[in-house]
Design a protein around this nucleic acid. Structure first.
Lengths: 112, 112
DNA sequence: TTCCAATAGATGCAGAAATCATCTATTTCG
DNA sequence: CGAAATAGATGATTTCTGCATCTATTGGAA
């Protein structure tokens, strides 16, 4: 089960919406709490997802150098990214319902 | 979005449980009706999934040559396959619920 | 002051998986 | 006869994943 299956993208979008602005290393701590599966999300996958989201215009980033420690690439959602999150909500709502139906059907079938 | 994401495996397992016995070409017609997403499931993916399920001992197959038309590789569930379907039901039940929570959270967050 | 751990971002690469086209063969039907 | 439907399958290219590894900055322990 890969990263698509782990739904890294929508979780990152939601976290950014909640936090307003954040950066990879910070996101990686909260990621697991909001994840849709308990499979671990690697940091490598997170960084790649963030750059990919930026490539699609769903987030924007800038370097933050005024804080202590190594420089941080700070991201925030764009308007497009917010719409993208809404779309994800629709997709996942449908998927959730269709899975629930599948489970019900499966259990009924197995009981017979 | 690949075949894992399309959840081809559990759908095939359920169909075989419902039908008792079936073969690739026959399954491919019903597959779309039971699929968890409306992304098309290719026949190539179906055949590969079936052989893979057989490799894992979840289904067994034999050639059926007495019917009209080209020979058919007819599959049925093994006991292991039935347990595997139960496991899938558990996984998808959890996933469905965690998606529902995610959607609720997302919509509440977006509304603010 | 030296060195380790934590923070922060990222890439390289082998192997796995997905996509898309293509192939073979059998049978039915106009 | 030849086209279409049935049936199963593979080859090749691209993409994705998993794991290891790399660079750099800073705080704090020894």
């Amino acid at each position: 089960m890969g990263n698509v299956y782990r739904f890294v993208e929508p979780v990152v979008l939601l976290l950014l919406k909640k936090k307003g602005r954040s950066y990879g290393y910070d996101l990686s701590s909260d990621l697991q709490d909001f994840a849709l599966t308990d499979a671990e999300i690697e940091r490598a996958a997170l960084y790649r997802t963030l750059r990919q989201l930026e490539g699609n215009g769903n987030v924007r980033s800038e370097w933050e150098t005024d804080k202590a420690g190594p420089a941080r690439r700070v991201y925030r959602l764009t308007a497009k990214g917010e719409r993208h999150l809404e779309e994800w909500a629709t997709v996942l709502d449908n998927l959730s319902k269709s899975m629930a139906r599948f489970v019900k059907d499966t259990r009924a079938t197995l009981r017979k």
